[in-house]
């Protein structure tokens, strides 16, 4: 009898600088599906004044050999200028923005607002029975906040996915 085996996996944050041309996002996303890699989150926006270059941040997980292949395969795409594995290159900052809608009355409503204050989450919309909080932070901070809000009337969560950058003065 044969069973499918699984290897130990690592989480890596990659930034990919690309020519901002038609189909490039599909090329990258498709590369991950075609070769059986995982995407945990993916963010993309252009970062130059003339809209010529985009920066994509991809969070992926897989065995170390696969992470190395992901790096090499991304570099192989012609419109890709640079791939940086932030997890490999040392300490880095990662931030994510989330919008979290919570509904409730009375004590729960007050508690939600109080905890939002502790997390420095900002109410960006309010009604007599609900809040939308805006929260920025590392993914685990957002995870924790969402977990607490679940007990206090969580309605909906929207997250941007991670954007990351190497710490220090140097460009990655």
């Amino acid at each position: 009898m044969m069973h499918i085996k699984h290897e130990a996996e690592e989480r890596h944050v990659l930034t990919v600088t690309v020519d901002n041309e038609a189909g490039i996002l599909a090329k990258i996303a498709g590369l991950f599906t075609a070769r059986g890699y995982n995407i945990d989150s993916l963010t993309v926006a252009d970062i130059t004044e003339n809209h010529a270059v985009s920066r994509i941040t991809i969070v992926t997980h897989g065995p170390p050999s696969q992470i190395d292949q992901i790096h090499a395969q991304l570099e192989r795409l012609v419109p890709v200028h640079k791939v940086v594995d932030l997890t490999e290159s040392g300490p880095f900052v990662q931030r994510e923005l989330a919008l979290i809608k919570v509904a409730g009355m009375g004590e729960k409503r007050v508690e939600a607002l109080r905890i939002a204050d502790v997390f420095r989450a900002k109410p960006v919309d309010t009604s007599t029975s609900s809040f939308i909080f805006e929260l920025t932070g590392a993914p685990d901070k957002i995870d924790t906040f969402v977990a607490i809000m679940r007990e206090l009337g969580l309605v909906e969560v929207g997250r941007t996915g991670v954007v990351g950058m190497i710490r220090g003065a140097e460009e990655a």
Binding site: A22, G23, A26, K27, G30, A34, L77, V78
Partner: peptide
């Protein structure tokens, strides 16, 4: 065609 050939070409273009 660009979508179908994406992963079996080294690079592809749709010229507009």
């Amino acid at each position: 065609t660009v979508g179908i050939s994406r992963h079996c070409t080294k690079h592809n273009y749709l010229v507009k």
